[in-house]
């Protein structure tokens, strides 16, 4: 079961500058949404606010109709998985990275599940034993995705997942996101790449000067 993720009129002010100026979005269950805009338009700030990693000065984030303020951050972020532009790999093997999410919730990750996850992001099982920090940019993105999926989230929220990758690797990530959406996950992707935003399918929002508008 996935829930609707919504942002209502988010405002973020930093040093007298309105980085977000009433940005709103609606992500129905199982839908894909791309947010496209030039750098400096506020889209990364929006993604972080939507992930509750940054407190907006005004406005609200809602999950399943419930204000995020009324959901424990640990719970919200388990249901809405956020991936930074260049996801940090934790020390140790890829497997240890995959175990991180369940571990913080006092659970363990079975070997079978770890294999499933790594295959779901298009990687082969031997990579589980490799040192995560030595992977390529594209591999790190995939491992970060698998790591997020280990928490069985309802929504995937990605900030510029293709920005640090070469065009081929970027396209493969977008294809992977489409696949994950087809399996029932909601996907929100922030990108400055118009082609990737369109390739994701679903609703396309444009971000300009801290506001979002549906691209018609």
């Amino acid at each position: 079961m996935t829930s609707t993720l919504e942002a209502r009129e988010l405002v973020v002010v930093r040093e007298d500058r309105r980085i977000l100026d009433g940005a709103s979005i609606l992500v129905p269950p199982g839908e894909a949404v791309a947010i496209q805009g030039p750098s400096g338009s506020g889209k990364s700030t929006f993604a972080r606010a939507l992930a509750t990693l940054l407190e907006p000065d005004a406005g609200a984030v809602l999950l399943g109709g419930l204000d995020a303020q009324r959901i424990a951050p640990t719970q919200f972020r388990t249901r809405v998985a956020f991936l930074a532009q260049q996801p940090a790999m934790f020390e140790g093997s890829v497997l240890r990275n995959l175990e991180a999410g369940p571990q913080v919730h006092g659970k363990s990750l079975s070997d079978v599940r770890a294999s499933e996850l790594i295959r779901a992001v298009g990687l082969d099982e031997p990579i589980l034993q490799r040192e995560a920090r030595t992977l390529s940019g594209g591999e790190k993105q995939r491992v970060a995705l698998a790591r997020a999926l280990a928490n069985e989230p309802e929504v995937l929220l990605l900030d510029e997942p293709t920005a640090a990758l070469d065009p081929d690797a970027g396209e493969r990530i977008v294809a992977l996101l489409r696949e994950l959406r087809a399996r029932g996950l909601s996907v929100v992707m922030v990108t400055h790449e118009e082609s990737h935003a369109r390739a994701l399918g679903g609703t396309l929002y444009r971000c300009e000067r801290g506001r979002l508008a549906i691209d018609s």
Binding site: A51, L53, P73, T74, Q75, R77, T78, A81, F82, L83, A84, Q86, P87, A88, F90, A100, G101, V104, H105, A144, R147, A148, N151
Partner: peptide, 18 residues
């Protein structure tokens, strides 16, 4: 210097302590 690590853990649902 390790803010990205700390935030990556928060994003996985970790408490600040974790």
């Amino acid at each position: 210097s390790e803010a990205d690590q700390v935030e990556a853990l928060l994003a996985l649902g970790a408490t600040p302590r974790q």
